[in-house]
Design a protein around this nucleic acid. Structure first.
Lengths: 335, 335
DNA sequence: CTCTTTGAGGTTACCGGTAACGTCGTCATA
DNA sequence: TATGACGACGTTACCGGTAACCTCAAAGAG
């Protein structure tokens, strides 16, 4: 009545009278065993309730880890949350596990996170950020594992990139506003800790305006974190400086909704007196009194495709270095 | 010119002419070395840019892992996102890393996640869920590591519990509504995948009403996932059945905001014609035309305290099994 | 002055998988 | 019949730390 709480490969091998290498081969789906052996092994594995030890596997020869590090700006954003859920799900199905961190738009924090991650010898790394420190780049090189940059496509990829162009999103929204006859347009943004993709959208927006010979009437870029509050007060401040606008483009939907709250409170009619547009396609945008004009991001698809691309690279399958995910301008009725 | 890309304990030991065990002792802050040796080791570690191999450490003798598994219902919720960020930060400072998963309120998914986690031999597990499968309980026992249940206190803890009582939150809101003179109260909720803490708040709310001799006029519990949409349509459906209400309690702030959107659109004045209350203290609640009455959750504090409690248990320090985190009813102006 | 304690280290074995390589029998082919 | 290729395993070494145990000198106790 030997009670081994955790049977290992060795135990199964002994029960079956074979070597543990054979068990390992069967379980990994490698070659070098007969069908009869496979059956026996799988039965015994089932019977004993064997739990593989990923730690030992990852610790052994390099290239056998199934750990993937993922770092995003924030965990409090439903957008990134959705990407992460999708990543977790897809990677789990492909036999990989994730270690998740956040860097709050600070490249230094990303490097610190990466350093810790590196000590776990992951099989690959996934980053959602536009700017990396020199230390991060060096570390990634030293680690010698595939790297996927997601979310933003504008930087030239270190290895793989899966995402979309924030610049283009901004540009498209500028065209949309112009097409709707908006002339005096303001922008309300927030810097947070810099390096945000939102700033790229702003650049694209400016380009879009200049393309059609228009210019931005006024901008209000807060130093705070973006959010409902920031949208509310940013709008207030901007209109105090220039109340001759007919549309406002916001850093994102949360800020747009905050702005809408301010406008509504002050009797400014949307879209009659003022057009409003956000970015992100958050659910709340569609239950407002008027559906918000915004850009929807297919976060679930992005996560799935990024996961599959990274695993393809890990397996050595041929794969494009850059994958573009289409975003979609949702017209709404606030422009 | 030997180029070892990754110096190990061995390399540092050789450079210094000591054994790698001494290096290990110094780095772990164990005892058994002189101050002079410590200095030398730390300098050499700095000079070589040594990166510890957590994998090897965790793989070795049990009890040396610094990996902590965390499973929450969703990653798309800012509430849980905030808890996770706080956990990550606090645990990182204490020398631990997290492996994060989500179960979408499905106990079976939690068990599947835990099984995968177990194969990484974590030092501890943190769960945010009210219901666990028998398999989960058995697995936790077999793993023999500390377990912290966070978010909800109502179930009797497996090991540690850090959270608050959803029941009490609901109860308090009932009292608040009664005190404000509300008599005909409805409830709009959403089941999602069952097992939600929201249902506990509902139970507490009912209890609160009965305490003062009142009863709920009508309820509308959708089978969908909670969210803005659900709040909007739930309100519509409920009012179609009973439009003689003077207040509505919602599953959470998102649903309350959805409900507010419906009410506003249909000319129902809040709070004059209808009182509204949510739960969660989301930022958006405070920039609405009228500040939403809700219950605020100190998510950052919860994460920090949960992390510290779990690490205390890991270190064998004395620690209370149950830690209550105070939530706070935010009066707002919608009741 | 001897005996014991203590501090500061060194040695060894081991964690549980996996790559690399070796072995042995079988079967097709020259 | 000799040969060689191949399938199906077994053997060995190793990944990089850490606990447990051992050693040895110096300090303190009696």
């Amino acid at each position: 009545m030997e009670k081994r709480p955790k049977p290992g490969l060795e135990d199964i091998a002994r029960n079956l009278g074979v070597s543990k290498m054979t068990i390992s081969r069967v379980l990994r789906g490698a070659s070098g065993f007969s069908e009869a052996t496979r059956e026996k092994v799988l039965q015994e594995v089932e019977r004993t309730g064997y739990l593989p030890n990923r730690l030992a596997a990852a610790f052994g020869p390099s290239g056998t880890s199934t750990l993937i590090g993922v770092c995003v700006p924030r965990l409090t954003s439903p957008l990134f949350g959705s990407v992460l859920e999708s990543l977790n799900l897809t990677l789990a199905r492909l036999g990989y596990q994730t270690m998740i961190g956040s860097h709050n738009q600070l490249p230094d924090e990303e490097e610190i996170w990466l350093r810790t991650l590196a000590s776990w010898k992951p099989a690959a790394v996934m980053l959602a950020s536009r700017v990396h420190t020199k230390g991060t780049i060096r570390l990634l090189r030293d680690m010698g594992v595939p790297v996927a940059e997601i979310w933003d496509l504008t930087t030239k990829p270190i290895d793989l990139a899966i995402g979309f162009s924030h610049f283009d999103d901004g540009l498209e929204m500028a065209r949309c506003m112009s097409a709707a006859g908006r002339k005096k347009i303001g922008y309300v943004g927030a810097l947070g800790n810099r390096n945000t993709s939102g700033h790229l959208r702003y650049q694209g927006f400016l380009r879009g305006l200049s393309e059609i010979g228009a210019t931005l009437a006024v901008e209000e870029i807060l130093k705070d974190q973006p959010g409902f509050y920031a949208g509310y007060y940013g709008t207030e401040t901007m209109l105090a400086r220039n109340n001759d606008l007919d549309a406002i483009y916001y850093h994102d939907d949360e800020m747009a909704i905050g702005g809408l709250a301010y406008l509504t409170k002050n009797g400014v009619r949307v879209p009659e007196d003022m057009g409003v547009a956000g970015w992100g396609g958050m659910e709340a945008a569609s239950i407002l009194p008027r559906r918000l004009t915004t850009t929807a991001i297919p976060t679930t698809r992005l996560g799935k495709i990024a996961a599959e691309a990274l695993v393809s690279r890990l397996r050595g399958d041929p794969i494009e270095d850059v994958t573009i995910i289409q975003t979609r301008l949702v017209p709404g009725s606030t422009i």
